[in-house]
Simulated assay, not measured.
Amino acid sequence: MSALDLFEEHRPTLFGIAYRMLGSAADAEDIVQDAWLKWSTVDVDAIAQPRAYLCRIVTNLSINRSRSAAVRRESYVGPWLPEPLVTAPDATGGIEQAEAISLAMLVVLETLSPMERAVFLLKEVFGFGYPEIAGMLERSEASVRQVGSRARRHVQARRPRYDAPAEVRRKVTEEFMAACLGGDLNRMMDLLAPDVTAWTDGGGKIRAALRPLHGADKVARWLLGVLSSNPHLASGVHEVLVNGRPGLLFAPGARPDSVACLEIAEDGTVSALRLVRNPDKLAHVRVPGPPDRGTGPTPSDT
């Protein structure tokens, strides 16, 4: 098998590592391209385990990139959210890996150090053993085990405690979308958990709350305020998968404006909402066919 064929075979895994490490699809693509440049100079016939070798390249490139990214985020305007991966719903596509790439999980991973993130992902998501990981990161196995244990405890303490079934997530997302577009404050309040938190990422380039919003009343009224002052948003709302989970894409005029993803509590209410509006983070989003909604009344019509 040629160097190119081997690289293309493992490209999804390489992108997956880089994206989870950096929370940026654009940066992940850059890392994969840099990995190809390195790989293309290697005598592939001398590489006994191409997958492990390529993952080593991408992991170390990602660790280096994540350090500079952390510096940039110190001056980021408002809450930072990962770039969403938006795809059309596919009834045949499983989402067994959704938790590994959900926005909520990526936010948790962001609280780890680059080394902790790398060890956690390589072990828990991509199935490498500690001896392999130690070789990739040029550390002792004992040190890597310690880092992995610390990272796992950190993630378990911060990840969402309840994982709603896919059908429940889809149903609640649809109902919440209808309530928002219809300007139905009472229904929105019913669907939002009393202690719901909303993060909105505009990056200082588009309207977004500069701090997390807490409480059903504050979250609902803020969302209605955005929709009432931007009624065009209701003209192109698509039900999509956001990192493998039901979400919403607002794309008036076939231009991505916002991507929303909800976390659902055990009682079926929305416990968290993440809204990405920074246009730089939506540049790679492809708008699907005709919108699923947009014919109903907007908040400004009620």
Rank of each mutant, 00 (worst) to 15 (best):
V259H: 00
A151F: 07
D27L: 14
V42C: 02
G78P: 01
V147E: 05
L106E: 10
L233N: 08
T59V: 04
I95L: 12
V219W: 01
R51G: 07
M189F: 07
V144A: 03
A208C: 04
L241Y: 08
F176Y: 14
L122S: 07
G93Q: 15
R255I: 14
M115A: 15
P256S: 09
W36T: 01
Y130H: 06
D5Q: 15
S143P: 02
S140W: 08
P12N: 05
A193D: 14
T92Y: 13
W199V: 09
P79K: 01
A98W: 04
E29W: 07
D45Q: 15
N243F: 03
E74D: 12
A234T: 10
T295H: 15
N230M: 09
S40M: 09
N230Y: 09
S40Q: 09
A26R: 15
M105Q: 15
F15M: 12
S62D: 00
R11Y: 08
P89D: 05
P89N: 03
P84A: 08
R152C: 00
A98F: 07
V237K: 04
A272Q: 10
H154S: 08
R152T: 13
V242R: 03
E99S: 14
L85C: 10
C261M: 12
R150W: 04
S300K: 13
D190Q: 12
T200S: 14
L275W: 11
R161T: 14
D280P: 01
V155Y: 06
V270R: 00
T59I: 01
P165L: 07
V119C: 05
R117I: 04
P84E: 05
R277A: 14
S102H: 08
D267F: 04
T173Y: 04
V44Q: 11
D45R: 15
S113P: 01
P84L: 04
N64Y: 10
G203E: 06
S2K: 13
V226L: 12
A100I: 12
G225M: 03
G127L: 09
P50Q: 06
L14P: 02
G204E: 00
S75I: 10
T298Q: 07
H238V: 06
T173N: 02
G202R: 01
V196G: 02
T197F: 00
K123E: 13
P50F: 01
T173P: 00
A18C: 08
L249Q: 03
I63W: 01
N278C: 13
Y76S: 06
V71K: 14
L282E: 07
L4E: 15
V86Q: 02
G294P: 04
R159H: 08
V168S: 10
V108I: 10
G225E: 05
S300L: 11
A272L: 05
A151E: 02
V196I: 01
A35N: 05
G127Q: 00
L181G: 03
D45I: 12
R286N: 13
F15T: 14
L14G: 03
E263R: 10
K205N: 11
R65T: 01
A18K: 09
D257C: 12
Y19P: 02
A209F: 09
A272S: 13
P194M: 03
D201R: 09
L112M: 07
A142F: 06
A88G: 05
L227I: 09
G16L: 02
R51W: 00
S113C: 00
I57K: 03
A3F: 01
G135C: 04
A70I: 06
V71N: 10
D34F: 06
V44E: 10
M21C: 03
L233W: 14
K218S: 13
L121H: 09
R169W: 03
V172Y: 02
L249V: 08
S113K: 06
